[in-house]
Design a protein around this nucleic acid. Structure first.
Length: 261
DNA sequence: ATGGTTGTTCCACAA
């Protein structure tokens, strides 16, 4: 089972690239973040024409997550339990082929010491509570998306440039670590323990891509039942080099697939 | 410390 995650920074602006990605890699599941539009603006017909179901949780202009899949998704959950009534579209969870899969987009949280920062920490607390519930099911679970967290100094080209940023703040990194330490496996880092350039995001500004001044903030976390089946994980950097690229590259993982249902 | 870029939308705001 091939599963990919990609922060596309507007699915409408990125439709040609996303379609090319599906065509090339034929993933069983592609989870998207920052689709940046309401559900009725999602290019559903284009993806259905390529043989994919689309589950969408969007909002106007900002945020928005979606899950494309070959098989029909079931038991759809929109938003995190405990979200405020004016919830931002940042979390979508479905079951596909016996695997519980979440597409998530953690708040950016900048600047530090703002309401956005406290909202990020509160959101991560709700995510951790949800992750604990999912672990208890003892089913294969995959939490994938843009976590907006640089886990360690190994995950950033130049740590000094991020010292005062909400993606690298110690409490944010501690919250991510606590989530992983519930019992999840960081698929990318586990399979590439010593790669010093395992990045998924390069800012549009300051020629970051050309300098490979990247960070690793897009993650795939696996429950033990999913981690048992992990055979492959990598960043597909080529999509960051395309014309009209997103500022994120997709992450692709493979789970060996037998009798998951 | 500042400025650098992209997308959505309507004008700044978010990233």
């Amino acid at each position: 089972m091939r599963i990919a995650t990609w922060n596309v920074n507007s699915v409408r602006a990125r439709l040609p690239l996303v379609s090319a990605f599906l065509e090339k890699h034929q993933p069983d599941v592609l989870v998207l973040q920052e689709i940046k539009g309401e559900d009725d603006t999602f290019p559903r017909a284009a993806f259905e024409g390529q043989g994919y179901h689309a589950e969408v949780f969007g909002q106007k202009a900002y945020n928005g997550v979606a899950i494309l899949s070959r098989e029909k998704p079931y038991n759809v959950l929109r938003g995190l339990p405990g979200d405020p009534p004016d919830t931002q579209a940042r979390y979508l969870e479905v079951t596909i082929g016996g695997v519980r899969i979440a597409s998530l987009y953690v708040p950016n949280g900048n600047p530090l010491d703002s309401e956005k920062y406290t909202f990020k920490l509160a959101w991560m607390d709700r995510l951790t509570a949800r992750a604990r519930v999912l672990l208890a099911t003892e089913e294969p679970v995959l939490l994938a998306g843009d976590f907006n967290v640089i886990p360690t100094a190994k995950d950033v080209d130049d740590p000094s440039g991020w010292e005062h940023d909400a993606l690298y703040a110690p409490p944010v990194r501690a919250a991510f670590r606590a989530l992983v330490n519930l019992g999840y496996t960081d698929a990318l880092r586990t399979l590439h323990p010593d790669d010093p350039r395992l990045f998924t995001f390069w800012d549009y500004k300051a020629r970051s891509w050309e300098r490979d001044a990247g960070i690793r903030i897009d993650h795939v976390l696996l429950s033990p039942e999913a981690a048992d089946r992990l055979t492959e994980a990598h960043v597909d950097r080529a999509w960051r080099d395309e014309p009209q690229a997103s500022d994120h590259a997709p992450v692709i993982v493979e789970l060996s697939c037998w009798a998951l249902r």
